[in-house]
């Protein structure tokens, strides 16, 4: 614990961080690694040229308390961005802003600019229904509906009226299950309840359910936290395959997972975005002391 406060005394006076990508960040390393220390801005490269999702100065409030402080981040096309950080750091809250799932929580307020392909997500005329079809979500705990496997996957296409014929629907279901790598395991029992599958299978079913409506972005909120290591490995493989067609934002508790599946990694701390960089950079040569302290396991 003593290392955490090692250089607290000699902390460099607060330095205004630029919110644009800045190459030179020489002074930053000398910052205090105290988990309660103030973060004044994001270091690293939070922005990219071909951004699918663009977030600027996002603030999120639950009633009076602020959960997210002034976060700016881009998520590139067909990229996997991992969001890591200690629990309660706001990474899940941030993720839920991207398809407006926070709307369902009473008293939750989102400020800032968020856009998907240049269209505002929180615009006054935006309809959340097609938005959520474009930005799908996979949740922490596998949550298949208490329906058959087939109906679970067909649910989205049915409510959106994507398939015009039964055969088309069958095709969508099969394709989605194939992509989720579940087809061979369940093709003989499509009429059995989805809740009867194992945890890992359930989560893949949820992924199949999400991709059945052809989303552009998939948000994953700690998708493996309830799974065993083998099922986790299977999902991680799947994420890598899905990257070809989808943009993926994944919140994870496991740094190894972030290192394995993502191209870029964002580190959140107490509702603030501390550092964004290529995954390799973050895990081998973090710019910010807090990031380093976190990835070396000094707090979590």
């Amino acid at each position: 614990m003593s290392t955490m406060t090692l250089n607290a005394g000699e902390a460099v006076p607060a330095q205004k961080e630029a919110t644009q990508p800045v190459a030179e960040q020489t002074e930053v390393k000398s910052r205090a690694a105290n988990p309660n220390s103030q973060v004044d801005g994001t270091v690293g490269s939070p922005f990219c040229d071909d951004a699918k999702l663009r977030m600027r100065n996002v603030n999120v409030f639950y009633g009076e308390s602020q959960a997210i402080h002034d976060v700016s981040l881009d998520i590139g096309r067909n990229q996997v961005v991992a969001m890591i950080g200690p629990s309660g750091c706001g990474k899940s809250t941030f993720l839920r802003c991207l398809n407006r799932m926070n709307d369902t929580i009473e008293g939750c307020r989102v400020e800032g600019e968020l856009s998907l392909d240049g269209e505002a997500i929180y615009g006054p005329k935006v309809d959340v229904v097609p938005l959520r079809a474009r930005v799908g979500m996979v949740f922490q705990k596998p949550n298949p509906f208490p329906k058959s496997i087939y109906d679970n996957v067909a649910y989205g296409p049915k409510i959106h009226g994507i398939a015009s014929r039964r055969a088309e629907l069958d095709e969508i279901v099969e394709n989605s299950l194939r992509r989720a790598g579940l087809w061979n395991e369940v093709k003989d029992r499509l009429d059995k309840p989805g809740t009867g599958l194992s945890g890992g299978q359930q989560q893949r079913l949820c992924i199949a359910r999400a991709i059945a409506v052809s989303p552009e972005v998939i948000l994953m909120d700690e998708p493996c936290s309830a799974l065993d290591p083998i099922a986790t490995a299977r999902i991680e493989e799947l994420i890598d395959e899905l990257r070809e067609n989808y943009t993926i934002a994944i919140v994870t508790h496991s740094m190894q997972q972030a290192a394995r599946v993502s191209q870029r990694t964002a580190y959140f701390h107490l509702g603030k975005l501390v550092e964004v960089n290529d995954t390799e950079t973050v895990f081998t040569n973090p710019e910010h002391d807090l990031t380093e302290a976190y990835i070396t396991g000094r707090f979590g």
Partner: peptide, 20 residues
């Protein structure tokens, strides 16, 4: 796996059907 297309529907078609 990667050569699998989302049935015969393009994403654009899907969007149109949802909008409709």
């Amino acid at each position: 796996m990667t050569d699998l297309t989302q049935s015969n529907l393009t994403q654009k078609q899907v969007r149109e059907r949802i909008e409709a």
